[in-house]
């Protein structure tokens, strides 16, 4: 499914533009939306799932113009996980909560149950089917809210801060889930502040600032511009920072890449400069 955002302008109050002519084309690759609070990230994703309609310009989900469809109808194509699970979770049993969306979309009871069971297993909560969501921790409730959207099996899945309140295991689980959705051909968009997560999962990143797209490119390109990121208080992933501090020629995105980069750098130096330490030092500074 392709999502096209074409020259979209949006404001909640006249004279206070939130999006100032945003054009983005999402197809295939998973995309991270980065930017400070108030940059327009949440507004953008609400325009894609039809909760908001553009003031001008248009948003197309496949062949549907969002302006022509109700939110409930668009939910067949676009799933959106809200940032705060407490805004979303309302059933007294996890199973019913996760089945709510699938049933709204008209899935039969059996299909909805199977889909929900799988989604819960993906977030590691298969054992919590009969629990009350409000007996779970906030982090677990977030996983329930993720499962309840994933179970809808929509072609587009949008996450608003998926890793908030998660520990290492939770982040890993969500990462694995997103990889699985990617493999199934789902279009993934995620708003996130977690740059290590972006580098690990998302091949493409879009940086928004004050309602405008300031960078849109491969994650590697985006993180090679710390100057542009600084304005948004975004720090590149830690491995990237290390590479940049060492002056590696390539932008590295992970610990493995950093290790390879440093080894390569050393051997190149070894080959080129031998024991010329002066040269070597210059290179590493």
């Amino acid at each position: 499914m392709r999502v096209r955002v074409e020259n979209v302008r949006f404001h909640y109050r006249l004279g206070e533009p939130v999006l100032k002519g945003v054009t983005l084309d999402f197809e295939g690759e998973a995309t991270a939306i980065i930017g400070q609070n108030g940059a327009g990230k949440s507004t953008l994703v609400r325009l894609i799932n039809g909760l908001l309609k553009p003031v001008s310009g248009e948003v197309r989900v496949g062949d549907w113009n969002t302006g022509d469809f109700s939110v409930a109808r668009l939910a067949r194509r676009v799933g959106l996980v809200f940032q705060n699970p407490n805004d979303q979770v309302f059933k007294s049993v996890v199973r019913d909560e996760v089945m709510f969306g699938p049933k709204n979309l008209g899935m039969s009871g059996d299909t909805a149950l199977a889909s929900s069971r799988e989604a819960l297993a993906d977030v590691g909560l298969e054992g919590a089917m009969d629990a009350n969501p409000y007996d779970l921790s906030l982090a677990e409730r977030k996983l329930v809210s993720i499962a309840s959207v994933v179970a809808m099996n929509t072609d587009v899945v949008i996450f608003d801060e998926p890793t908030i309140a998660q520990d290492y295991a939770g982040v890993q689980r969500i990462g694995t889930l997103i990889e699985k959705l990617k493999a199934r051909g789902k279009l993934i968009i995620a708003i996130t502040h977690d740059m290590d997560f972006v580098a690990e999962i998302f091949p493409r990143a879009v940086v928004l600032r004050r309602g405008e797209v300031i960078i849109d490119g491969s994650t590697r390109e985006v993180f090679s511009r710390p100057d542009l990121l600084r304005d948004s208080f975004v720090e590149p992933p830690h491995a990237t920072q290390l590479g940049q501090a060492l002056g590696l020629s390539e932008t590295v995105l992970s610990v493995d890449e950093a290790v390879k980069g440093i080894k390569g750098h050393r051997s190149r130096l070894g080959g080129l400069a031998g024991s010329d330490t002066a040269h070597d030092q210059q290179f590493f500074q």
């Binding site: 290590d196 992933p237 830690h238 491995a239 920072q241 290390l242 501090a245 060492l246 610990v255 493995d256 950093a258 290790v259 440093i262 080894k263 030092q281 590493f284 500074q285």
Partner: peptide, 30 residues
Amino acid sequence: AYTSVARELDLRRPDGTLPVTLDDAVALLR
């Protein structure tokens, strides 16, 4: 992340521990 990189490169501080901060890792690497 700095510690993981240092572990892979077997880069240790004089006391045998791994660096944990960016500055420390960079200094050791240099």
